[in-house]
């Protein structure tokens, strides 16, 4: 049961990374690839109907984590207090910048929200990458299962790390590059005209950067937490995840013909999914590794809720997920195809 819920949360977080990932990525390259008012409107219309639903995956995953692994929720959220609060502020700023920009035609008003949208998106990808890297590297959990992590210490991994060290900064850069590429491929798929071409040429330049960072990231992970390899050495089938990473990178190679756009975007989805699965396999069955000598890893066994809660949860979770998949299919189906260049305003 615990293993099942580990993977349920992992799947929900992966869905968040793949789905909200592309609209975060669009934000990260927004100022650069969308230059005119028309192009910016087009870029926003490409994510407008879906970004809010994509972000719900984060909330749904958070809620599921809360009831399935209350101890992890309590320990990790209070331990990552400051960066989490900053993530919340950035989510607030990003949400209002997408939605409120269109409510006035004043160029200054729009420029302000354009800048805010791009900045908040870039910082969010950086924070999310660093957060994931923190979980992989481990934190100094105390004997009471709690910790409190400073933003930085000496930038080294070890017994008393900070949120930012060389490894988590690498994770942040990987997330920024990976999601920016993901966003570019989405824009190349969904838009037309200059925006489409600029997104494509940016993707072509980002692609090798992502490959280099990925090649650095995997050995760095083993260096930062050698135990990450444990599951892989005992279960060779786990190496399918890194294979998926390579396949994703190969598949997404941004090509010029229009028919390859969807293939590239799928390749990017495969890449992000495999990276997430690979990271989860490196952790399993640990949820949050401890560094230093004071405390123990938080594991599935130590953090899991009671059996009745989990049984009942499984029933409504399955039902709810079916409904959610149905909604997502309807929305993505209705907004299929390219977003035209010359539509009136953003929505409404």
């Amino acid at each position: 049961m615990g293993t099942l819920w580990f993977w349920i949360v992992a799947v929900m977080l992966t869905a968040y990374v793949v789905l909200d990932g592309f609209d975060l990525g669009v934000g990260a390259v927004y100022l650069f690839v969308a230059r005119t008012e028309e192009e910016r409107g087009q870029a926003l219309r490409a994510i407008g109907p879906v970004w809010d639903g994509n972000e719900v995956w984060l909330l749904a995953a958070g809620g599921t984590l809360f009831f399935a692994f209350p101890l992890l929720y309590a320990s990790a959220f209070s331990g990552f207090y400051l960066p989490l609060m900053m993530v919340l502020w950035l989510l607030v700023l990003r949400g209002i910048s997408i939605e409120l920009r269109s409510h006035s035609a004043d160029p200054l008003w729009r420029t302000f929200f354009d800048g805010l949208f791009a900045l908040a998106s870039i910082l969010l990808t950086i924070f999310f990458g660093a957060a994931l890297a923190n979980v992989i590297r481990g934190v100094p959990i105390g004997p009471d299962n709690y910790f409190f992590l400073p933003l930085w210490t000496n930038f080294r991994t070890g017994a008393s790390p900070g949120i930012l060290d060389w490894y988590t900064i690498l994770g942040a850069l990987m997330a920024l590059a990976g999601l920016a590429l993901h966003g570019c491929l989405y824009l190349a798929l969904k838009t037309e005209g200059h925006l489409e071409h600029r997104a494509l040429s940016t993707a072509l330049r980002l692609w090798p950067v992502v490959i280099v960072l990925t090649c650095l990231g995997i050995p760095a992970t083993i260096l930062a937490r050698p135990a990450s390899l444990a599951y892989y050495t005992h279960h060779p089938a786990a190496f399918l995840a890194p294979l998926g990473v390579i396949a994703g990178l190969a598949l997404m190679r941004p090509g010029l013909p229009a028919r390859s756009r969807f293939k590239s975007f799928l390749g990017s989805c495969l890449y992000l999914t495999s990276m997430m699965v690979g990271a989860c396999l490196g952790l399993f069955p640990v949820l949050l590794p401890a560094v230093g000598t004071t405390g123990h890893d938080l594991t599935i066994a130590s953090a899991i809720s009671g059996p009745h809660t989990l049984h009942v949860g499984l029933v409504w979770w399955s039902f709810g997920m079916l409904l959610a998949l149905m909604y997502f299919s309807i929305v993505y189906w209705l907004f299929r195809g390219k977003v035209s260049q010359h539509a009136e305003g953003y929505g409404h």
């Binding site: 719900v56 909330l59 749904a60 958070g62 809620g63 599921t64 809360f66 009831f67 399935a68 692994f69 209350p70 101890l71 929720y73 309590a74 809720s305 009671g306 809660t309 009942v312 949860g313 409504w316 979770w317 709810g320 997920m321 409904l323 959610a324």
Partner: peptide
């Protein structure tokens, strides 16, 4: 969390 986490997760889903 085993109690109130449930309605909160259900709200999201």
């Amino acid at each position: 969390g085993g109690v109130i986490g449930m309605p909160l997760a259900m709200e999201g889903i």
